[in-house]
Design a protein around this nucleic acid. Structure first.
Lengths: 342, 342
DNA sequence: CTGAAAGCGCTTACAG
DNA sequence: CTGAAAGCGCTTACAG
């Protein structure tokens, strides 16, 4: 039997209500009794039962992270640990815990979601998905349950989210290649059902169009967020009768697979093909050659998401419901000018 | 106000106890009433309040992951996502959730620990540390609280843990280099307060001794689990009047930093210096040159730890309290024979 | 400033 | 097979 608030009350010679008030510090209690109670807690080694507290206060001081169904892929991508690092940093700061939940089937996913949200295990959730059809969003909105999306909601109506300007980011990447003299630019997309993939493809096409460069459907291909997908994608591209001279890859992890494929196929980077990726994961700098990439501020994405969520839970005024984290192009050796060699 | 078991009971025309029994499925209830109750739950959209359930049943169906204080380093190392992937896979299978908790100061760490363990937020914890002085172990043992260590406990007395045979693993790595003709072998250790670092250093020394090779203290240096630490370590080694011809690095992430340092300092790998790392993270294969390393089965480490913990919580008989995950040497281009070139 | 009482939403002996 | 009642360990109006 654990030590309860009653035991403390008895030892301190006060009522349980008083002990509760001392712990919560939100009501005036005389210094004298406060001391007595604290003394009693100390000698008994009292720790409040958080389940009981949650039951009555309807708050758990923990938030949930809902991973996409393809959790295996998620864990394999350094993007994940980096968002997690950001989320954790802020939660740590406000004293909240993080509950993770990843189902590997639709049923498991749903059950996990029910446990967290309907079962009341968390006060709010962060969604790490921005799929076209997101089944959770309507459920959360209907219940008025606090949540924030990392990525962009399909309909922006009143939803909290943190994202990059992916259209602009991809536009910038493309322009970088165009300015180096490339006219045949390919594109390796992430899964097409993700909004982020769409946005990046849009940015790419927009740049091509603005600069009057032909957009060729056979130079666009789709890949999963896995190295081997990149490997496959590049094998395909190289088999084309007319090859691009530069390729945009919407995730560094795929980009690394592309680099590996090019190396094995004896195709020199950047001499024969230039590559620019997305995310600026730490491996990108170490690759051979180091990968030019768009840094999207992953840590910031996570940190800000946690911040927005906590504000929502605490019902604090948020200046705005969405934050766009700035991106920047990091130029490395995988891209080089076709005009002048530097 | 959420829908409770009472609402369901009323609609189904039974008592709350009966509803509870239908949900928990552990007592005989007539098919007829079961149907009625399920019907009622369905139409009301009932979801059990897990906090209330936890309070009375004293079980949360969630387990905690306690990260070391240097959480920032942890998140930056792919080792982390990989254990997490393993842990998650098993928890998912048994329907448990994972609560993460990382403090950045001693106080925060302690508070987080108290919340999870003493506050009753979890049914058991996985410790991701095997420090020399581990303050949590005695607290957990005293309370008889289920836990498992990833790594090795200082005193093995009745403690559940999952580890590698790190002495043997490091011995194997060293012998690999010796067999290739190296006689001057350096060692970059991880933080010395970690038992894993000690074990690996022991294995290294043991191999040198058995093969009658001189062990030189100035060829042994300590590094944090960060790339830049590896970079610094190698700068130091190269400044020595007599350099080693091969180096064992006890973590690939440090190894990658070493590789980077060697490249910048114009020192060829493996021609001038051979390198062997530990962990076989996915970057290692992609490095230039690809890194020879000891694969320690990280995913397995996590999966098994979760398994051992759940068994302990469910009070199932465990065949044994500890599991040693097998390792294997993965030979790549960063090590090469001094005798015959392959 | 403090206490007695009711209640949060469940489970589980105890009867029947 | 089912129900009434007590209780899990807290919080919080309501009085005083």
């Amino acid at each position: 039997m654990a030590i309860t608030i009653k035991d403390v009350a008895k030892l301190a010679g006060v009522s349980p209500s008083t002990v509760s008030r001392v712990i919560s510090k939100n009501q005036k209690i005389s210094l004298e009794t406060t001391k007595k109670v604290e003394q009693a807690m100390e000698t008994l080694g009292y720790h409040p039962n958080l389940m009981a507290k949650s039951l009555v206060s309807r708050s758990t001081k923990t938030i949930g992270l809902i991973l996409p169904l393809s959790a295996e892929e998620v864990f394999l991508n350094p993007f994940f640990s980096e968002v997690l690092r950001g989320i954790n940093a802020y939660l740590n700061y406000v004293g909240f815990d993080l509950l993770m939940s990843a189902g590997s089937t639709e049923t498991e996913e749903k059950e996990a979601f029910n446990r967290l949200v309907f079962g009341g295990k968390v006060d709010g959730v962060i969604l790490l998905t921005s799929r076209e059809k997101e089944p959770m969003t309507p459920l959360l909105m209907e219940r008025n349950f606090p949540f924030v999306i990392i990525g962009r909601p399909k309909e922006e109506k009143d939803i909290f989210y943190v994202d990059n300007d992916n259209v602009k980011a991809s536009y910038d990447a493309t322009v970088h290649l165009i300015e180096q003299g490339h006219k045949r630019i390919g594109f390796v997309s992430g899964p097409r059902d993700l909004l982020v993939s769409r946005d990046r493809e849009d940015g790419y096409k927009k740049a091509l169009q603005e600069y009057g460069i032909e957009s060729r459907p056979d130079w666009i291909t789709e890949a999963k967020f896995l190295q081997e997908s990149g490997y496959n994608a590049i094998s395909f591209m190289l088999s084309l009768p007319e090859r691009p001279t530069a390729i945009i890859v919407t995730d560094d992890i795929i980009g690394l697979g592309v680099l590996k494929g090019l190396y094995e196929l004896g195709c020199k980077v950047p001499e024969e093909i230039s590559i620019v990726g997305f995310n600026n994961i730490s491996m990108s700098e170490l690759a051979t050659p180091p990968l030019t990439t768009i840094d999207i501020g992953i840590y910031q994405l996570g940190y800000t998401a946690a911040q927005l969520l906590i504000r929502q839970i605490k019902q604090e005024e948020s200046v705005s419901r969405s934050v766009i984290v700035p991106h920047r192009l990091v130029v490395r050796k995988s891209t080089t000018s076709r005009l002048l060699d530097n």
